[in-house]
Structure formats: structure tokens, C-alpha cells
Amino acid sequence: MNAPLVATLGLARHYRTGRGVLRALDGVDLSIDRGETLGLVGESGSGKSTLGRTLVGLQAPTHGSVLFDGADTAGLRGDALRALRRRRQLVFQDPSGALNPRMTLGATLREHLRVQGWTRAAVRERVPDVLEQAGLPAAFAGRYPHEISGGQRQRAVIARAISTDPDFIVADEPVSALDVSTRAQIINLLRGLQRARGLTMLFISHDLSVVAHTCRHVAVMYLGRIVEVAPREVLFATPRHPYTAALLSAVPVPDPVRERQRGRILLVGETPDPSSPPSGCRFHPRCPLASGICAQVDPPMRSLAPGHTAACHHSDKVGSVEAVAQAARGLTALG
């Protein structure tokens, strides 16, 4: 069997804040096979960006480890670390903030490659090449970020990420800052690159429909934990965690007829403060299916089918958005 390219074991990242310890990641086990694109969805504060930054080494884990190509990345120094940086790259959400406004796109790309030890001659050849792969004219090397549109800036950020020929890319909300019509162009570009180069990718987004179009597998995060992982067809048809079901039901669908008919799960309240997560299952205060055990025992990730895992005491009662919607309606009727 194919060994995963990227894996984490009990990964945790804590921050000290004025109110105590904020557990942005609190025990994440994850693996991404070579050539696979894993979608990571969750709401603000769920820890998805922290996970992405930890996977590319921009942040060190507090506990646990990140394995790349089977080797623990924690002890790497010097040349070995530089070589690893070449192999894992990040695409940021806000392309304007990710590019130096005082450098031309060409200068940005040249610097990125020179740091990686490329010779001047090789860099000169590479720059127009990667711009074109990202769908920009080679002449854009002379442009400054403010001279081009937001979609073009995101293409430049993608050009930089693929310039070192990486194996693994973390794309952190790569289309959230873009307009609808530009968003589709960038999604198509990322899909094309992923297929053409056999890239392994973690695609972070709060938008489930964007993830559906980019990733074959999807992981759902809530409050520093992964609560469900499944192939997208399975996750969307038969979610087994009530939070996944609620997320799916909350996505507005651009079809007025279906919008009127579909069941909606209205969750109570908002995501709790990650510096004092609820006892037991972290989702229990908002969960329409919660029972006594949920407040006491933290549910472990359980395998439900090949490739499908979920952390819920009641995953056998979930099964569909409609089932949870019904439970939620019962709750409002009682309350």
C-alpha cells in the first residue's frame, strides 16, 4: 500500500493568552496519501489554519509530530530543513498581503528560488515558465502587485508556491477573498495543477461547495479536533457527525426551489471559546442529539467504513441531514 506523504500523530498546538491556554489544535491524527487532495472544512477558530501552518512547518507543534514522507520533521536542521521547505509550500488566503508590494512579481519569484539555492541562469528560465503555468503572461514578471487584479495576484502566489516543484501544497482559503467569477478560474487552475503534477494538497476552506469541487476526501474540524473524515460522496450523502450534518444544511444553495424544500438544522449558539472547551464531546452544548454521556466522555474517532471515521457517541443515529434536522425540530418543539 501507498504510504501517506503527510501524516500527523497526536498533533497539538497551544497558545498562551491572557485567559489561559488556547488549544488551537488538540490532538489531531491525520494522513494524506501521495497525490490526494484532502479538503479541510470548519468555521473560524476551529484550528484549520493552524493545522495548515503546522503541516508546512511555519509553526512548531506543542505536542505530537508531523511526519513527511515517513520521517519526523521535528529534528531537521540546515540543508535537510531547506530541502523539506522546497517540497512543501503554502498558498495564502489574501494574495495582496502575501506579496511584497514593493517587489515586482519577477523579483518575488527570483528571491524565492534563489533562497532555495537555484542558480541565476536557472531562475531566469524558471520565472516565465511558472508564470505561464499559473495562467499569467510571462511579461507580468515586470508588474507590481497593485498593477494587477486580485485573481491575478492569487495566480502569482500560486506560481511562487509551485516554482520549487513541491510535492505538497497547503492552500489556505485560496479563493475566499475573490469574486465569484474569478473564484471559478482559480479553482480550475488548482485542480489542473494538482492533476498534471500529481500534487498532494491540503485544501482549507470554510466553503463546502468549493471543497466539493477540489477534493476527493474531506475532513471536518471543530474546536481543535477533526470530527469526521470521509470521501466527499459519502460525507455529503451520509454524514455521521451531527456537526457535519449541520454544516451541510447551512450552506445556501443557489436554487430557490430547493432552498424552500430542504431541511435546515439551526444550531444553538456559536462556537465556544477554544481556551475553555466544553467537557466531554466539544460539540455537545450545540448538538441536537446530545445525551448524558456526551457531556462526560470525549468520543474517540471510530472507523465506520473504509476511509470513513467520525468522533460521535451517536453516529449511528446521524446518517443524513434530514435525520438530524428532525431531531433538532423535536428539540425546539420540546423546548
Binding site: 491575478q152 469574486d179 465569484v180 467569477s181 471559478a184 478560474q185 479553482i187 461547495s209 466539493a212 469541487h213
Partner: peptide
């Protein structure tokens, strides 16, 4: 039509290319 075509659907057409509107706003 371009706008509606470029919105990814949640539950269908995952393997298809999204329709795009060339250029930018």
C-alpha cells in the same frame, strides 16, 4: 448565466470544470 455557471454546486458535477467568465470585473 456566467455567474450562475461559475458557482460550484454542493452535490453534483464535481468532476466537471467550473464555467468561468474570462477577464475580471
Amino acid at each position: 448565466r456566467g455567474l450562475l455557471g461559475s458557482v460550484p454546486a454542493l452535490d453534483s458535477g464535481w468532476e466537471e470544470e467550473l464555467a468561468t467568465i474570462p477577464g475580471s470585473v
